[in-house]
């Protein structure tokens, strides 16, 4: 009896002095990270300036910077400065299975947050407002959505842009001839070789493609309102509020301190974009008080 009492006292003592917010209370991603000693960032290989493999062979970009901030705060929360950051390159096909099965802890890319997807995954706070935009060759004379009537237009298979364009096409009876391209490089090849007259993709991707092209003056992003509302966010696992709390707090700190302006400017200026008033408001309302 005495012996047993001593044992439980010793057990309680270890608990009390076990340092990181008593490891036993941890669950979900925080527990997994604490146990494995590493936090795994899933990224895209080719979505500049958000998430791509940089010149030094390492993933970089706007979303990657934000995820590094989240990782830093996870280290502080767990009092584990020794945590390692690992990277796994994802494709649209494997990103959900690999997040859900625990291979990666965050998907740091250009993922749109919507309720259908929230049946399967969860998101941190919105970090970018995107929407579908039309890129066209300067010689097509396309100035608006209505000008796409009857023309060959590329959309990437499975993208939210595909969904919105097919809905708009039906709604406005445009009779667009859709070409369902696999990815942006292929869509660009179609546009460049006149197989298609326009490509519909996320706003930053649209600007990025034009800037990166061989002859930027031969292409243009059709101005005017965006064709859809696509809030981008970092993807995390469902039912994991403890980890979400750390993540959202890290982001809110960036939004509140104005540090987000520098990060935004650093990456988005590379494709000639600057922060619009809507985005400023977005960061302001998401900067919840401490």
């Amino acid at each position: 009896m005495v012996w047993r009492l001593a044992l439980s006292a010793a057990f309680l003592a270890t608990l009390a002095f076990a340092g990181p917010a008593s490891a036993d209370d941890l669950y979900g991603t925080l527990k997994k990270v604490n146990d494995s000693g590493k936090i795994v960032i899933g990224h895209n290989a080719d979505s500049p300036p958000f998430s791509y493999i940089g010149a030094n062979g390492k993933p970089e970009g706007y979303t990657i910077d934000l995820c590094h901030r989240v990782a830093e705060d996870v280290k502080k929360e767990l009092k584990r400065p020794d945590l390692k950051i690992e990277y796994v390159s994802l494709t649209p096909v494997n990103r959900i299975p690999l997040l859900v099965n625990g291979t990666v802890d965050m998907v740091c890319a250009t993922t749109t947050n919507n309720f259908t997807r929230q049946r399967q995954v969860d998101y941190l706070s919105t970090m970018y407002i995107s929407g579908a935009r039309i890129i066209t060759r300067a010689d097509t004379g396309i100035k608006s959505l209505a000008d796409l009537k009857g023309r060959p237009v590329t959309v990437n298979q499975g993208s939210s842009n595909e969904q919105i364009m097919k809905a708009l096409d039906e709604q406005q009876k445009l009779g667009i001839r859709f070409i369902n391209t696999k990815d942006n490089p292929q869509a660009w090849a179609s546009l460049e070789s006149s197989r298609s007259d326009a490509h519909v993709t996320d706003e930053p991707t649209a600007y990025g493609l034009v800037v990166a092209s061989k002859q930027p003056d031969k292409y243009l992003v059709v101005p005017g309102p965006r064709l859809s509302f696509d809030p981008f966010a970092i993807v995390v696992r469902r039912d994991d509020s403890a980890f979400r709390l750390v993540g959202n707090k890290a982001l809110a700190d960036l939004y509140r301190s104005g540090e987000i302006d520098k990060i935004y400017e650093k990456w988005l200026s590379t494709i000639g974009m600057s922060m619009d008033p809507e985005t400023k408001t977005l960061f302001k309302v998401q900067a919840l008080p401490e």
Binding site: T154, Q157, S159, Q163, K182
Partner: peptide
């Protein structure tokens, strides 16, 4: 054929998995 944009069986299922987030 999905690589050149034909919506055959594989690309259809990929498309649906992107729409629904039920890839498996």
């Amino acid at each position: 054929a999905l690589s050149i944009g034909l919506l055959e069986l594989t690309s259809r299922t990929r498309q649906i998995s992107e729409y629904t987030y039920q890839p498996l």
